[in-house]
């Protein structure tokens, strides 16, 4: 056997276990789920077949379709608000905080990241609840007469999400800003641009790939999350992941849950296609 052939055989041998694992536990399950999404429920029995009924039902039944609309609305607000809050914080850490303190400042900015995800949403319940810190403080200060109803609303879900994604985006945007050579800003200012003009025309465009990457990540994680809306959002409206879990739990309707999951994945794929031009997933 030649050396090259021997090397190649070794290469296949090394890559095979990971490939087989991914095929068996990622690709195959997805195919099984796709097939199941075309099945039908008769009573409590799943009947296999090729029936697009679940998809037709989703697009014609407003109570189902509304979950997608709710999810998209929440995700859009969360992405925009998180970006607006995180960008200045990342810029302050990158440009105003002395170099030797930057790593510490960043580490502190993402420290609550390390609380358990479930517990983090629960903590917001303590802050926003009827007897929570915010209401007790406002009542005590005499600013309100009745406790505000924030918990169990969409606002609470959005606050919980924004908290998480501000941390994530501060990290990704900081990583982008710190790679910029200070010469760009210097050159712009030498050419007569003011601080604001420098930012809008030089710094912002240069960090756009990082911003889009962070926004895409926020979109994907936010629209697929079940925990935050389930703990903070109350029962008035459902997001798509909540609807999926409801199908699994209460009615055991696996075909419909599968179809909803395929739709969720299609939405994420569309978002990917829309932002692919600017995405730099390899630079995360």
């Amino acid at each position: 056997m030649t050396l090259a052939a021997r090397e190649r055989r070794l290469g296949w041998g090394l890559v095979a276990p990971a490939l087989l694992w991914t095929l068996a536990f990622f690709v195959l399950p997805f195919v099984a789920m796709l097939a199941l999404s075309f099945a039908r429920m008769e009573g409590r029995e799943v009947v296999a077949g090729f029936d697009p009924g679940n998809y037709i039902r989703f697009f014609t039944d407003w109570t189902l379709f509304k979950a997608l609309v709710t999810s998209l609305e929440i995700t859009a607000v969360v992405t925009v608000v998180s970006l607006i809050l995180a960008y200045p914080l990342a810029a302050i850490i990158a440009f105003r905080v002395p170099q030797r303190w930057q790593r510490l400042a960043l580490l502190l900015a993402v420290l609550p990241f390390w609380t358990s995800y479930v517990v983090r949403s629960y903590s917001w319940l303590l802050v926003l609840g009827q007897n929570g810190v915010v209401n007790k403080t406002l009542l005590w200060a005499g600013l309100i007469a009745e406790p505000l109803e924030i918990a169990a609303t969409r606002t609470a879900t959005i606050i919980g999400f924004v908290h998480f994604f501000v941390m994530l985006l501060t990290l990704t945007i900081y990583a982008n800003l710190i790679q910029l050579s200070p010469n760009y800003a210097r050159a712009a200012q030498d050419l007569g641009a003011g601080r604001i003009a420098t930012f809008i025309h030089v710094i912002l465009p240069l960090t756009l790939p990082g911003v889009v990457t962070g926004a895409f990540l926020t979109f994907v994680l936010c629209i697929g999350d079940y925990i935050t809306p389930q703990i903070l959002g109350g029962n008035n409206e459902l997001t798509l992941p909540q609807l999926i879990m409801l199908q699994l739990g209460r009615s055991g309707n696996f075909p419909l849950a599968s179809a909803l999951s395929v739709i969720l994945m299609a939405v994420v794929t569309l978002a990917y296609a829309a932002s692919a031009r600017w995405l730099r997933l390899d630079r995360l």
Binding site: F26, P29, F30, A32, M33, V220, I223, G224, Y226, P241, I244, M245, L248, A257, S258, S261, L264, M265, V268
Partner: peptide
């Protein structure tokens, strides 16, 4: 999404 991996 983790939810989709889990459901599959």
């Amino acid at each position: 999404s983790y939810l989709i991996i889990a459901l599959g």
